[in-house]
Amino acid sequence: MPRFMGFVRMEEGQGNPPQALFDAMDEYIGKEAAAGHFLDGGGLYGTEDAVNFVVKKGEVTRVDGPYAESKEVVGGWAIMQYDSLEEAIAGQQDFAELHRKYWPEVSMVATLRQIPDEPPTPAED
């Protein structure tokens, strides 16, 4: 059964979601988990304590948050499992619709990506 990763990108500093969205998400996730679709997931803290390691030109640099130049951050994630891509897309759209309905002033992107069953093949040198 195909697995997918969903994540939410949003502008940082939009504040906390309203309680109505939390309640709707609890119901939605409970329903999806009972159906075997929602495997794991959750929200993320802001970037104030985030740590990035940037690899560039053979060097590794540590960059601690917050990131003043950052316009979007990943705010949450989920690992899901569906019988088909079409079902996964419908589930991600339902998730986005909850945000539209219960937090209409938010600006966010709900992304869905399929997780491969096998690791990628390394590039040849």
Rank of each mutant, 00 (worst) to 15 (best):
Y45P: 08
W77Y: 05
P18Y: 05
A110C: 09
K56C: 10
G42F: 07
E97N: 11
Y45V: 03
I29G: 00
K57F: 12
L39V: 07
L21T: 14
K31W: 06
A35E: 09
V73W: 08
E72T: 12
V63E: 15
Q92W: 02
E87N: 13
D94N: 00
D64Y: 09
D23S: 09
V106N: 06
A68L: 01
E105S: 13
D49V: 01
V55G: 03
V109R: 12
L44Q: 09
V51C: 07
E86Q: 15
A68M: 06
K56F: 12
F95H: 11
A50Y: 06
Y28C: 01
I79G: 14
E32R: 07
G30E: 11
A88Y: 06
M80E: 13
G58A: 15
L112F: 04
Q19T: 05
E86D: 14
E97D: 05
G30H: 15
A110S: 09
V60G: 04
Y102R: 01
L98M: 00
G36S: 00
L98F: 04
S70G: 07
S107A: 14
V74F: 01
L112H: 09
W103F: 09
A33L: 02
L112E: 08
G42N: 02
V60T: 12
Q81R: 13
T47N: 10
A35R: 06
V51T: 12
G65R: 00
V74A: 04
A88D: 05
T47G: 10
A33Q: 15
K71R: 13
Y67G: 10
F38D: 11
Y67A: 04
Y102E: 03
V54D: 06
V54C: 02
I29V: 11
T111I: 03
E97R: 01
F22D: 06
S84P: 12
S107C: 13
V60E: 02
P104C: 06
G76P: 10
K56L: 07
F53Y: 12
G41V: 01
H99R: 12
E97C: 02
A34E: 02
F95M: 03
A88E: 00
R62G: 01
G75Q: 09
G75F: 07
M25D: 11
E72D: 11
L44D: 11
L112K: 10
H99C: 13
D49P: 06
A35G: 05
D64T: 11
L39F: 05
W77F: 06
A68S: 06
L85Q: 15
G58S: 13
E69Y: 03
L44H: 07
K31R: 03
T111G: 04
